[in-house]
Amino acid sequence: MELTRLKKRSTASNPTRLTLPNNGMIGWLLIAAVVIGFLLVWEHASQTRMISRLFYPPPSVIAQTLSKWFTTTEWQEILLPTLRRLAGGFVFGMLIGYVGGLFIGYSATLYRYADPILSFIHPMPKIALLPLALVVFGLGDTPHRIVIGLAAFFPMVINTTAGVRAINPNYFAIGKVYHVRPLTVFRRVLIPGSLPSVVSGLRLSFNSSFVITIAIELNSARDGLGHVVWLAWETMRTEYLFAGVFLIALIGVIATSILRYLHRSILRWQT
């Protein structure tokens, strides 16, 4: 997080902002130095048994594990199922949440009925619904995707609704004054006007469904990163554990930067 923030500041177009000269480069170097230094100390301490090699395997061993996953077909049972589950649930729940949010935000009547229900279910940790989903949908991946989808749905529907409702009434009044067709109002007012809130909803939605994906895998899947990490703990294969956690973090970082990029490119009209 701090990494990207530093970078952003250095490339910001506003030259009046108080910043150290060239701090982007210095920041990167500093961070790289700290990380490399930490890894070297860890490597040395683990190799010389200053710390438990069983609990804290040397980074080189973790790196070897990672490269083994990706040079063989192992990644197809580790990384791929997680991505598949996540994508299936997230895309589905997010899209339904988005479309639902547009309508709930636009229609006062719909909002009056939907809001109390959504507000009631939203704060609930969606993982608590997993057993129920297993009862209703049986074993297999369907209940998983449904729960992941629900986790994606709620932040999205709530943010989209809020985004639509936050659109200044004048923007709709202009549409009415100049007899703009409803479909055009949807396209030119509703969708762009709610976008700032929708984009933050998208980020929350991804985070939420990613957390649930890993939680489900820890708990009740037979493949995927969460499963690997849990199995590694049970069998004390800590290099698997660290490698798995590293990949989980990496997915988060990559997704966050994609969404951040999206945010910046979509919302160029904001100051």
């Binding site: 200044n168 004048n170 923007y171 202009i174 007012v189 006007g193 009209w269």
Partner: peptide
């Protein structure tokens, strides 16, 4: 109609 505020769409 001309409004005092919020009369132009910031995204257009």
């Amino acid at each position: 109609m001309v409004f005092q505020q919020f009369g132009v769409y910031p995204w257009l």
